[in-house]
Amino acid sequence: MNFHDVRFPARLSFGSVGGPERRTEIVSLSNGFEERNAPWAHSRRRYDAGIGVQSLDDLEKLVAFFEARKGQLIGFRWKDWTDYKSCRPSGVLSDLDQVIGTGDGQTRDFQLAKSYRSGSHVYVRPIAKPVEDTTIVALAGDRKIEGSDYELALGSGTIIFDTPPPVGAEITAGFEFDVPVRFDADRIETSVANFSAGEMPSIPVVEVRV
């Protein structure tokens, strides 16, 4: 797919409105009950890139980014300031933040992932776009060294160990991450009069699968 491994200006995404979206198909039965089905295994996030634009200089930077991505054609990285770390937003990264797998003596590749828990229910979100130089990995609680013990594929979020972790060994990781997105419109509409009236442009952004 068309994707540029570049981040939308983080200062402009700060304060943006957005979050996860699910798709649920609901059928109302004649007896009053419902049948509900979720065709998506994973949620998709939407944002508004125009909220952070506070000046014409900001707009110029956004337009340049938009043109370089050719509108909706090419994806890019987006920092979701409400959810960009393997730990809590107020926490400090630890190599024990997230369990990403258990060794079986054969598998070398493990996908970065973040778990969202509510009671006994857990949703595991694959992380495909970790931020460079933020990922820390441990094997059975023992911190490992990137480049010596494992490699990180920044384009897919895959941890690749030099040798398969032993059977039963828990693989954990801490990391910062971006959301792969694209613009959800092929045009930007605004004017100097809009800015004078305090009206910001609306520029939708939507998550893409990579």
Rank of each mutant, 00 (worst) to 15 (best):
F177E: 03
E151F: 13
V181E: 00
A173M: 04
A169Y: 01
E151G: 11
F161C: 04
D149C: 07
I159Q: 04
R182I: 08
S148N: 14
P180N: 07
V167E: 13
P166F: 11
R182V: 08
E170F: 10
F177Y: 10
G174S: 04
F177T: 01
P180Q: 03
E146M: 14
E176P: 08
D178A: 14
T163A: 15
T172V: 06
G147R: 09
D149H: 06
P164H: 05
G147E: 10
G168M: 08
G157A: 04
D178N: 15
I160S: 15
R182G: 03
F161Q: 01
P164A: 12
E170N: 11
R182W: 02
F175Y: 06
E170K: 13
E151R: 13
T158Q: 09
G157I: 02
G168L: 10
V181R: 02
L152A: 05
E176I: 05
T172N: 00
V179E: 07
P180E: 05
Y150K: 00
V167Q: 11
A169Q: 10
A153H: 10
D162W: 13
P180I: 00
D149W: 06
R182Y: 01
S156W: 05
I159D: 03
S156E: 11
E170P: 07
L152Q: 02
A173H: 00
E151I: 12
S156R: 05
L152P: 03
P164R: 06
F177M: 05
S156A: 11
E151V: 11
S156C: 09
T163D: 13
T172G: 06
G147V: 12
T158V: 15
A153P: 02
S156Y: 02
G157C: 04
A169I: 07
G174D: 02
S148M: 14
P166G: 12
E176H: 13
S156I: 06
I159G: 03
I160P: 09
S148L: 15
F161S: 06
E151L: 15
P165E: 05
G157S: 07
F177I: 04
A173D: 01
S148T: 15
R182Q: 12
Y150C: 00
T158C: 10
G168V: 07
I160R: 15
E170H: 11
E170C: 11
D162A: 13
Y150E: 01
E146A: 15
P166Y: 11
G147I: 11
G155T: 10
G168E: 09
T158R: 07
L152F: 00
P180V: 01
P164N: 04
V179K: 00
F175T: 04
G147W: 03
L154T: 08
V167C: 09
E146Y: 10
G147C: 12
E151S: 14
D178K: 02
L152S: 00
D178G: 09
L152Y: 04
V179S: 05
I159K: 02
E176L: 13
V179Q: 01
G174I: 01
G155Q: 10
A169N: 09
V167R: 12
F161R: 01
A169R: 06
